[in-house]
Amino acid sequence: MSYYVAHRLFAAHDRALAAQLAHHLARKLGEDHVFLPFCDTDEENLVADVKGRRLFELDRDRLRRIRALIAIVHGPSPDDGVCMEIGYAAARGVPVILLTTDFQDYSTAPDGPRTDFPDPLLDALATRTVRLPRLSATTEPSGTSRFADFARRNQAQARQAIDACVDATLQLPAPAADTPAPSPSSNTVYTEPSPYVPPHHPLSVLTRNPHVTTISQTRFEAPDPLTAARRDWTAALASARILVDASGPETPPGAALLIGAACAIGRPAAAYLSRSSYTHAAGREPNCRNLMIQYGVDAILRSTEEVTTWIGR
C-alpha cells in the first residue's frame, strides 16, 4: 500500500511543492511506498489512444490501494481533481491529510463561523489538517535584494509545512479495513447546487418528480456548517444517485468531492454542465473539465431534458 500525494498539476511551482513533499515522505517510508501523480504516471511521455482517460485510470487504480492520501489544498478555488481524489479516499475510509499555507479563513457570511477551506466539507473530511499560514521568521539578509529575502521566507515556510505534514503522516494509526459503502435508499437523489451561480432549473425538476425523493445540500446555509457538512456527506453516500452542478470556473469543491465518493463506492453520478470551455494538452483529447471529473462521472448533462432522462433510467 502506498501514500498518495494529491496536488494541482498545471504549474511548475505546484508540482515542485508536491515533489518536495513526496521526496521527504519517501526518505521516511521508502520510494516504493509513495505515489506522485504526473511524475509516476509519466504524463509528459505517456502515449495512449485516449491519454486523458488512461491517466484517469492509472490514478484511480492507485487510489484503490492506498494507505493514506496527502493533499495540497490552497486558495478560494481548490483544484477539482485534488478534491475528487480526496472524496474518493474519504468514501473508502482512507485517512486524508490536508496541507495548506493559505492565510485566509472562509465563511458564508461576514460574521459567520469560519472554516479552513472555502467548502466546509473539506474541513469535515480531513483526518488532519496541517496549516502553516504565516511566512517564516525573518532570517539574516541575503545581501542581494529584499525580493530574494522574501523568496527565502516563503521557501522556509514551505519546508516547515512539509516537515509538519510528514510528521502528521507518520503518526497515522494502523490502517483499518475499507469502510463498506452504505446501502442506498431507493429512488433518492442527492443534489449539489453550484455555489458559483444561481440555482439551475435542471436540478429543480427533480422536486417535481413524484417518483424521486430529493435530498439537497444544506451546509452553506446552516448555522453550524461543519455538522451540516457531515450530514450532507452521509446523505449523499446513502442516496441512490448523486447529481451535481459542475458550473463555475472549475468544478466546485463539493461537487468534485462527491464525484470522487460516487466513483469510489460505485454510486451513479452525473454532472450538470450547460456550457464549458475545453482544455488542451499535448497528446491529450480535449477535456471539458479536469479529467478526474470528466471520467469520474457516468454522464455530463447539458439540459433539463437530459437531467430528466438520466433520473428516469
Rank of each mutant, 00 (worst) to 15 (best):
I70K: 00
C263Q: 10
Y196M: 07
R60W: 05
A176G: 11
D111G: 09
L203M: 10
A255R: 02
R219V: 07
A19T: 12
D42R: 14
S107N: 14
S77L: 12
P173I: 12
S303D: 14
E44G: 08
T234W: 04
D224S: 12
Y106V: 04
A68Y: 01
F147V: 12
Y278L: 15
A235V: 05
L170H: 09
L29Q: 06
Q157F: 06
T138V: 11
L170Q: 08
S277V: 14
E57D: 10
I162D: 00
H211G: 10
A26K: 02
A176E: 12
T101P: 01
A18I: 05
G283T: 10
A282Y: 13
R128I: 10
F150C: 06
A158F: 07
L243G: 03
R64T: 11
T214V: 15
L46H: 05
R208Y: 06
A281I: 10
I265M: 08
V94H: 03
P286M: 11
W310N: 01
T304S: 15
Y295K: 07
A148P: 03
A126G: 06
D61P: 02
G143S: 13
E250K: 13
Q294C: 08
S107I: 13
A261L: 15
A148I: 13
A281P: 00
A158T: 07
T169K: 05
R60H: 10
D178R: 11
S77H: 07
P268I: 06
A168L: 12
W310C: 04
